[in-house]
Design a protein around this nucleic acid. Sequence first.
DNA 1: CATGAATGAGAATTCATTCAT
DNA 2: AATGAATGAATTCTCATTCAT
Lengths: 193, 193, 193, 193
Amino acid sequence: MVKTLIDATARVIQQQGLDNTTTARIAEAAGVSVGSLYQYFGDKDSLIEALMESLAEDIGSGLRHLPLLDNDDMHALVGNAIRFGFAVLHSRDGLYLELVRNWHRLPTNRVVDVLQQHFMELARLYFLRHYRDYPIDNLEVRVFIVTNSVLFTMVRHISQNNGLIRESALATELTSMVANYMTQPPQSPEAQP
Amino acid sequence: MVKTLIDATARVIQQQGLDNTTTARIAEAAGVSVGSLYQYFGDKDSLIEALMESLAEDIGSGLRHLPLLDNDDMHALVGNAIRFGFAVLHSRDGLYLELVRNWHRLPTNRVVDVLQQHFMELARLYFLRHYRDYPIDNLEVRVFIVTNSVLFTMVRHISQNNGLIRESALATELTSMVANYMTQPPQSPEAQP
Amino acid sequence: MVKTLIDATARVIQQQGLDNTTTARIAEAAGVSVGSLYQYFGDKDSLIEALMESLAEDIGSGLRHLPLLDNDDMHALVGNAIRFGFAVLHSRDGLYLELVRNWHRLPTNRVVDVLQQHFMELARLYFLRHYRDYPIDNLEVRVFIVTNSVLFTMVRHISQNNGLIRESALATELTSMVANYMTQPPQSPEAQP
Amino acid sequence: MVKTLIDATARVIQQQGLDNTTTARIAEAAGVSVGSLYQYFGDKDSLIEALMESLAEDIGSGLRHLPLLDNDDMHALVGNAIRFGFAVLHSRDGLYLELVRNWHRLPTNRVVDVLQQHFMELARLYFLRHYRDYPIDNLEVRVFIVTNSVLFTMVRHISQNNGLIRESALATELTSMVANYMTQPPQSPEAQP
DNA sequence: CATGAATGAGAATTCATTCAT
DNA sequence: AATGAATGAATTCTCATTCAT
């Protein structure tokens, strides 16, 4: 039942948008009554929190099954990750898209942490394996920048859909920017005026 | 009066958040009645549109007065632009922050265009002056990526405010990523698997 | 509840007039909250439509139970119909009166059809039984004229209530006009200049 | 100015309907400010009253210039009157139509009196000239019936516009009903059961 | 447990009227 | 006289939440 309600919530958000996601519609989509909804979730926010939790798991699992470290080349690794990102955003009829757009109104901490920590770990392992240690000292900053840059650039592109920039071109360029950045040695302090 | 209402709208958005920005509160903040609001703006959306328009002008003007091209060095140029970005996001008590967070529910086209076009022009002039032509062919994509990456990374950082990453460090790293990316030669096609 | 709301609507229209019939007043008259009203009817118009539908049924049923065809005499038939009409208009504290007055702002099609079709059928049966066929060719026009003439003359009389004309006199004269008209042979074409 | 405002009111009613006739729109149509409107009319109702007064005069004058009594034949007289009625209802882009539809929400007494009295007088003169005195005793009732029957049947026909009944057929039949009724001897009392 | 009817505060918008300039 | 900005009560409709059955 908890599962049913979470699924229904996802479906409503994806079909009607977050603004039109009401408890009534969720209950209807789940085929139960509003009363039942409140028997399993204290309020609407808890339900949405549970949805986010569930998605965090999905994403974590999806990432864990992605054989990114099989790539010896940072460029290939990043490229695969970005392609995966686009695939996720296009999946489930734009559910993730709507959620990312509304990150600031949603309890996204868990999801963000999953992403951040996964890519953090990935980076650590990559650099360990390749005996490079130079970016380690500020790896957290780099992962933060890269994650947010890629995610929001993708979402913005899909959302405005102006057709001037093809998705493949965007992926190529993002990959190039990120791969180069991640393999770039730390800045010497005097470089910043 | 039009000015007063737009200012009041900005104040309410910044103090109460976009979700709690009601016509009643705007009118109250402006020290007028709801009726007056509707004498100057057909509906709430028009008022918000006027606010966005006004901000687009402010931003355009702010950018135009920024002597970014005085820098001969791309690194310095980008660093200054990013510092300016942080300053804007911190200004007006977080108004811009709230607006960027809610970009998808707001008529942000004008503002986005102002930003995009300004940086596009800036990049063109920079490369012209430095006799480098290599990234010209996909400059649009690069500017799109860079603008969104920087903007949303900054907003995400200020919004979650977790204290683990200092703003100065973020600025330094963003600058590094962007400056390198912008001066990077185009990818040879076979680089992408 | 649907019934309660429709009844409340009727009561409010009849007591306060259509112009002062607000959703708040209807809910109050029904002893429920506005929210409840909107759980049963999508909007105010639907509620009023439901009221009209309900009245259409009442009127249809009332007409069907009226033994008008027991009269062999057109004069008696029409007289009975008109007396019934006055009785209906005086019933329910003037509800019907207010509705007829506002016919053009209400979904009156159903009610009008019920009236029109009933009298059409009545006329057909009457002429069939009396072996007269002459007015059959333009019976529709005659029924249209007669229905509207009688209905609006009655409503106008009750509404202005100037006391100069007694209702019984009006009924007598209307009956006379209508009965004669209905039994009148078709006009020869040259009668109209 | 008074004239200008009344004209503007008529124009707004005719173009937007009575429900959308606001003081703001009237002022705009008149090319003056709302303030001016209130300098000449105490409130909206007074203005509309003035319009009705003005139309009463127009109608009275129109009727007086109609040579109805030139007809020796009641049938021709009524036919001409009805044709005139249709012409008026079609004139001024439906202004009169909208006013008749809303008679119960408007100060229509004056207009109604003008109509009623004119046809009363007309009938009296007609019967005087033709040495017939029989319907004189209840002439008022007959004129009331005839006026309202014709007026509202016409308005209903134009308003619903269903195309099944042609206006000329309606005029012919109305004429026939009315002319016969007006020349019909008084009912003997026992005729009504 | 499940139901779904009932709630009522709150949102956007309209419009006749006033009044300082 | 003329203006038109300002008013604010009133209206329709929404939705998270409760609770008796």
